[in-house]
Simulated scan of single mutants.
Amino acid sequence: MNISGNTIFIPGATSGIGLALAHQLRAKGNTVIVGGRRTELLDTIAAEGSGLHTVQIDTTDAASVATAAREVLDAHPDLNVIITMAGIMRVEDWSTPAGFLETAEQTIVTNVLGPIRLIAAFIEHLRSMADATIMTVSSGLAFTPLRATPTYNASKAAIHMLSESLRLQLAESSVRVVELEPPAVRTALMPGHEENAFAMPLDDFVTEVIGLIESQPEATEIQVENVKFLRYGEARGDYAQVVATLNHLDPHGS
Protein backbone atom coordinates (compact mmCIF):
# COMPACT_ATOMS: atom_id res chain seq x y z
CA MET A 1 0.00 0.00 0.00
CA ASN A 2 1.33 3.42 -0.90
CA ILE A 3 1.44 5.86 1.98
CA SER A 4 -0.08 8.81 0.07
CA GLY A 5 -2.34 9.68 -2.81
CA ASN A 6 -5.16 7.33 -1.77
CA THR A 7 -8.84 7.73 -1.04
CA ILE A 8 -9.46 5.64 2.06
CA PHE A 9 -12.63 4.54 3.84
CA ILE A 10 -12.24 3.43 7.48
CA PRO A 11 -15.44 2.12 9.10
CA GLY A 12 -15.12 2.03 12.87
CA ALA A 13 -12.89 5.10 13.00
CA THR A 14 -14.75 7.45 15.34
CA SER A 15 -12.31 6.71 18.18
CA GLY A 16 -9.24 4.69 19.15
CA ILE A 17 -6.91 3.18 16.58
CA GLY A 18 -9.24 3.97 13.69
CA LEU A 19 -9.47 7.70 14.35
CA ALA A 20 -5.77 8.08 15.15
CA LEU A 21 -4.88 6.22 11.97
CA ALA A 22 -7.33 8.36 9.98
CA HIS A 23 -5.66 11.56 11.17
CA GLN A 24 -2.15 10.34 10.34
CA LEU A 25 -3.17 9.01 6.92
CA ARG A 26 -4.84 12.36 6.19
CA ALA A 27 -1.61 14.13 7.19
CA LYS A 28 0.29 11.96 4.69
CA GLY A 29 -1.74 13.31 1.78
CA ASN A 30 -4.69 10.95 1.56
CA THR A 31 -8.41 11.66 1.34
CA VAL A 32 -9.92 9.85 4.33
CA ILE A 33 -13.54 8.99 5.06
CA VAL A 34 -14.33 7.74 8.57
CA GLY A 35 -17.42 5.71 9.32
CA GLY A 36 -19.28 4.95 12.52
CA ARG A 37 -22.67 4.30 14.08
CA ARG A 38 -22.97 7.36 16.32
CA THR A 39 -23.93 10.53 14.46
CA GLU A 40 -22.84 12.77 17.34
CA LEU A 41 -19.27 11.49 17.08
CA LEU A 42 -19.31 11.87 13.31
CA ASP A 43 -20.62 15.43 13.66
CA THR A 44 -17.83 16.27 16.12
CA ILE A 45 -15.17 14.89 13.77
CA ALA A 46 -16.61 16.81 10.83
CA ALA A 47 -16.73 20.03 12.86
CA GLU A 48 -13.09 19.80 13.94
CA GLY A 49 -11.84 21.02 10.59
CA SER A 50 -9.33 18.19 10.23
CA GLY A 51 -10.31 17.48 6.63
CA LEU A 52 -11.78 14.07 7.43
CA HIS A 53 -15.00 13.13 5.67
CA THR A 54 -17.69 11.17 7.51
CA VAL A 55 -20.42 8.64 6.78
CA GLN A 56 -22.79 6.79 9.09
CA ILE A 57 -22.47 3.00 9.00
CA ASP A 58 -23.34 0.07 11.23
CA THR A 59 -21.41 -2.96 10.04
CA THR A 60 -23.72 -5.29 11.98
CA ASP A 61 -26.56 -4.20 9.68
CA ALA A 62 -26.34 -5.41 6.07
CA ALA A 63 -28.64 -2.63 4.81
CA SER A 64 -26.52 0.02 6.52
CA VAL A 65 -23.37 -1.34 4.88
CA ALA A 66 -25.00 -1.26 1.45
CA THR A 67 -26.30 2.28 1.96
CA ALA A 68 -22.95 3.57 3.23
CA ALA A 69 -21.09 1.93 0.34
CA ARG A 70 -23.32 3.74 -2.17
CA GLU A 71 -22.85 7.04 -0.32
CA VAL A 72 -19.07 6.68 -0.18
CA LEU A 73 -18.71 5.68 -3.83
CA ASP A 74 -21.08 8.41 -5.03
CA ALA A 75 -19.04 11.06 -3.20
CA HIS A 76 -15.62 9.47 -3.74
CA PRO A 77 -15.53 7.48 -6.99
CA ASP A 78 -11.73 7.35 -6.76
CA LEU A 79 -11.87 5.27 -3.54
CA ASN A 80 -9.07 2.71 -3.64
CA VAL A 81 -8.52 1.63 -0.02
CA ILE A 82 -10.82 0.23 2.67
CA ILE A 83 -9.65 -0.52 6.20
CA THR A 84 -12.07 -2.82 8.03
CA MET A 85 -11.47 -1.34 11.48
CA ALA A 86 -14.86 -1.83 13.21
CA GLY A 87 -14.72 -4.41 15.99
CA ILE A 88 -15.65 -5.23 19.59
CA MET A 89 -13.85 -7.09 22.39
CA ARG A 90 -15.82 -8.55 25.28
CA VAL A 91 -15.00 -10.77 28.26
CA GLU A 92 -16.93 -14.06 28.28
CA ASP A 93 -17.68 -16.71 30.91
CA TRP A 94 -18.11 -20.07 29.21
CA SER A 95 -19.11 -21.88 32.40
CA THR A 96 -22.75 -21.28 31.44
CA PRO A 97 -24.42 -20.42 28.09
CA ALA A 98 -26.06 -17.41 29.71
CA GLY A 99 -22.58 -16.07 30.38
CA PHE A 100 -21.26 -16.07 26.84
CA LEU A 101 -23.65 -16.96 24.03
CA GLU A 102 -25.13 -13.53 23.33
CA THR A 103 -21.72 -11.87 23.59
CA ALA A 104 -20.15 -14.51 21.34
CA GLU A 105 -22.81 -14.03 18.68
CA GLN A 106 -22.42 -10.24 18.75
CA THR A 107 -18.65 -10.59 18.45
CA ILE A 108 -18.86 -12.83 15.39
CA VAL A 109 -21.41 -10.59 13.68
CA THR A 110 -19.28 -7.49 14.29
CA ASN A 111 -15.75 -8.84 13.90
CA VAL A 112 -16.22 -11.44 11.16
CA LEU A 113 -19.48 -10.86 9.32
CA GLY A 114 -18.96 -7.07 9.37
CA PRO A 115 -15.64 -7.15 7.46
CA ILE A 116 -17.05 -9.75 5.06
CA ARG A 117 -20.00 -7.48 4.30
CA LEU A 118 -17.70 -4.50 3.82
CA ILE A 119 -15.41 -6.33 1.44
CA ALA A 120 -18.39 -7.68 -0.50
CA ALA A 121 -19.82 -4.15 -0.82
CA PHE A 122 -16.61 -2.68 -2.25
CA ILE A 123 -14.80 -5.53 -4.02
CA GLU A 124 -16.27 -4.93 -7.48
CA HIS A 125 -15.32 -1.26 -7.33
CA LEU A 126 -11.84 -1.96 -5.95
CA ARG A 127 -11.16 -4.49 -8.72
CA SER A 128 -11.91 -1.74 -11.24
CA MET A 129 -9.18 0.50 -9.81
CA ALA A 130 -5.61 0.40 -11.10
CA ASP A 131 -4.16 0.07 -7.60
CA ALA A 132 -6.34 -0.83 -4.62
CA THR A 133 -5.94 -2.19 -1.09
CA ILE A 134 -8.10 -4.05 1.37
CA MET A 135 -6.61 -3.70 4.84
CA THR A 136 -8.07 -6.11 7.36
CA VAL A 137 -7.52 -5.76 11.10
CA SER A 138 -6.77 -8.89 13.10
CA SER A 139 -4.83 -8.97 16.39
CA GLY A 140 -1.91 -10.55 18.17
CA LEU A 141 -4.66 -12.60 19.83
CA ALA A 142 -5.29 -14.32 16.48
CA PHE A 143 -2.06 -16.20 17.23
CA THR A 144 -1.96 -16.42 21.04
CA PRO A 145 -5.21 -16.70 23.02
CA LEU A 146 -6.25 -14.48 25.88
CA ARG A 147 -8.18 -16.64 28.36
CA ALA A 148 -10.88 -14.05 29.04
CA THR A 149 -11.94 -13.41 25.42
CA PRO A 150 -12.41 -16.72 23.56
CA THR A 151 -14.68 -15.49 20.78
CA TYR A 152 -12.67 -12.35 20.16
CA ASN A 153 -9.55 -14.50 19.76
CA ALA A 154 -11.41 -16.80 17.37
CA SER A 155 -12.82 -13.88 15.38
CA LYS A 156 -9.38 -12.42 14.82
CA ALA A 157 -7.97 -15.82 13.85
CA ALA A 158 -10.77 -15.98 11.28
CA ILE A 159 -9.80 -12.56 9.93
CA HIS A 160 -6.19 -13.71 9.61
CA MET A 161 -7.17 -16.75 7.55
CA LEU A 162 -9.69 -14.74 5.54
CA SER A 163 -6.90 -12.30 4.68
CA GLU A 164 -4.57 -15.11 3.65
CA SER A 165 -7.26 -16.68 1.47
CA LEU A 166 -8.38 -13.45 -0.20
CA ARG A 167 -4.78 -12.64 -1.00
CA LEU A 168 -4.56 -15.91 -2.93
CA GLN A 169 -7.81 -15.31 -4.78
CA LEU A 170 -6.95 -11.71 -5.68
CA ALA A 171 -3.30 -12.34 -6.54
CA GLU A 172 -3.82 -11.70 -10.25
CA SER A 173 -5.95 -8.59 -9.70
CA SER A 174 -5.12 -4.97 -8.89
CA VAL A 175 -6.24 -5.44 -5.27
CA ARG A 176 -3.70 -6.01 -2.51
CA VAL A 177 -4.73 -7.58 0.80
CA VAL A 178 -2.85 -6.25 3.83
CA GLU A 179 -3.42 -7.43 7.39
CA LEU A 180 -2.86 -5.05 10.29
CA GLU A 181 -2.05 -7.02 13.48
CA PRO A 182 -2.25 -4.80 16.58
CA PRO A 183 -0.92 -5.83 19.99
CA ALA A 184 -2.68 -4.53 23.09
CA VAL A 185 -3.06 -0.78 22.55
CA ARG A 186 -4.27 1.82 25.05
CA THR A 187 -7.77 2.47 23.72
CA ALA A 188 -11.31 2.12 25.06
CA LEU A 189 -11.77 -1.25 23.32
CA MET A 190 -12.26 -2.80 26.77
CA PRO A 191 -12.87 -1.21 30.19
CA GLY A 192 -9.57 -0.23 31.78
CA HIS A 193 -7.62 -0.75 28.57
CA GLU A 194 -6.63 2.91 28.34
CA GLU A 195 -4.72 2.59 31.63
CA ASN A 196 -3.20 -0.82 30.88
CA ALA A 197 0.53 -0.50 31.60
CA PHE A 198 1.28 -3.50 29.38
CA ALA A 199 -0.55 -2.01 26.38
CA MET A 200 1.19 0.12 23.77
CA PRO A 201 0.45 3.88 23.81
CA LEU A 202 -1.93 4.70 20.97
CA ASP A 203 0.21 7.42 19.38
CA ASP A 204 3.29 5.19 19.44
CA PHE A 205 1.38 2.36 17.80
CA VAL A 206 -0.09 4.45 14.99
CA THR A 207 3.21 6.24 14.33
CA GLU A 208 4.97 2.88 13.98
CA VAL A 209 2.21 1.59 11.70
CA ILE A 210 2.50 4.61 9.42
CA GLY A 211 6.27 4.17 9.32
CA LEU A 212 5.90 0.51 8.34
CA ILE A 213 3.43 1.31 5.56
CA GLU A 214 5.79 4.00 4.27
CA SER A 215 8.94 1.88 4.42
CA GLN A 216 7.37 -1.44 3.35
CA PRO A 217 4.66 -0.66 0.75
CA GLU A 218 4.64 -4.27 -0.46
CA ALA A 219 4.13 -5.78 3.02
CA THR A 220 1.25 -8.21 3.43
CA GLU A 221 1.23 -8.00 7.25
CA ILE A 222 1.76 -4.83 9.27
CA GLN A 223 3.40 -5.88 12.51
CA VAL A 224 4.77 -3.44 15.06
CA GLU A 225 7.57 -4.85 17.22
CA ASN A 226 5.26 -5.28 20.24
CA VAL A 227 3.04 -7.81 18.47
CA LYS A 228 5.79 -10.17 17.37
CA PHE A 229 5.98 -11.84 20.78
CA LEU A 230 2.41 -13.07 20.24
CA ARG A 231 2.59 -13.50 16.47
CA TYR A 232 5.58 -15.83 16.29
CA GLY A 233 5.45 -17.93 19.47
CA GLU A 234 4.64 -21.11 17.59
CA ALA A 235 7.31 -20.46 14.95
CA ARG A 236 9.92 -19.77 17.65
CA GLY A 237 8.92 -22.90 19.55
CA ASP A 238 7.95 -21.08 22.76
CA TYR A 239 4.18 -20.95 22.21
CA ALA A 240 3.31 -22.50 25.60
CA GLN A 241 5.47 -19.93 27.38
CA VAL A 242 3.90 -17.09 25.39
CA VAL A 243 0.38 -18.28 26.30
CA ALA A 244 1.42 -18.56 29.94
CA THR A 245 2.98 -15.10 29.99
CA LEU A 246 -0.01 -13.49 28.32
CA ASN A 247 -2.40 -15.11 30.76
CA HIS A 248 -0.13 -14.79 33.83
CA LEU A 249 0.10 -18.57 34.20
CA ASP A 250 2.88 -20.88 35.31
CA PRO A 251 4.24 -22.35 32.02
CA HIS A 252 4.36 -25.76 33.74
CA GLY A 253 0.68 -25.58 34.62
CA SER A 254 1.05 -25.34 38.38
Rank of each mutant, 00 (worst) to 15 (best):
L25K: 06
E225D: 15
R37K: 10
N196G: 13
I8M: 08
M161S: 14
Q24M: 13
A68D: 06
M135V: 12
I45R: 04
V55C: 00
P251Y: 04
V177D: 09
Q24I: 13
P201M: 02
L141E: 09
L19H: 05
A130E: 15
P115S: 11
T84N: 15
D43L: 05
T133D: 14
R167G: 14
V224L: 10
L212V: 10
D204H: 02
G12T: 04
G114A: 06
P183E: 03
I123E: 08
R147D: 03
A235Q: 12
L246F: 04
I10W: 06
A157G: 06
Q106M: 14
Q223P: 03
M129T: 12
H125I: 07
L19F: 10
L168D: 05
A197P: 07
R70T: 14
Y232W: 09
A154N: 00
I159G: 13
A47W: 05
I57K: 02
T136D: 04
S254G: 06
V109K: 09
R70P: 03
A66K: 08
T133P: 11
N247K: 06
P145R: 02
R70F: 10
L168H: 12
E234N: 12
T59D: 08
H53S: 13
A104V: 10
S138A: 15
G16L: 09
E234F: 13
I134G: 11
P145C: 10
L212S: 03
V81A: 04
D250L: 01
D74G: 06
P182L: 06
G18E: 00
M1C: 05
V242D: 00
P145S: 04
Q24S: 11
E195N: 11
I108D: 07
A13L: 09
A219E: 03
H248R: 14
L25S: 02
V112W: 03
F205S: 01
R167K: 03
S50Y: 04
E194A: 15
V242M: 02
G87L: 06
T67I: 05
L113E: 12
T14H: 08
V185E: 00
A154T: 12
H248F: 02
R26F: 07
S174A: 12
T7R: 12
L249R: 04
L25D: 07
A27M: 12
A244M: 04
A121R: 08
E214K: 10
A22V: 03
I134H: 08
A98W: 00
Y152K: 10
Q169E: 11
R236F: 06
A22M: 01
I17N: 13
G99H: 08
V177F: 11
V206K: 03
R90V: 15
S139F: 01
G35I: 00
T60C: 13
D204Q: 07
S155I: 07
A157N: 03
L189C: 09
N153V: 12
I123R: 13
T136C: 13
A154D: 02
T7V: 14
E172I: 01
A27K: 14
G51Y: 04
T84F: 11
I213G: 11
E92N: 08
A120H: 15
S254V: 14
I108P: 07
G99M: 03
L101W: 15
D43R: 07
A188W: 00
L19T: 08
F122M: 02
E221W: 00
P150Y: 07
A188M: 01
R70V: 14
D43S: 09
F198V: 15
D78C: 08
F229E: 06
G237R: 06
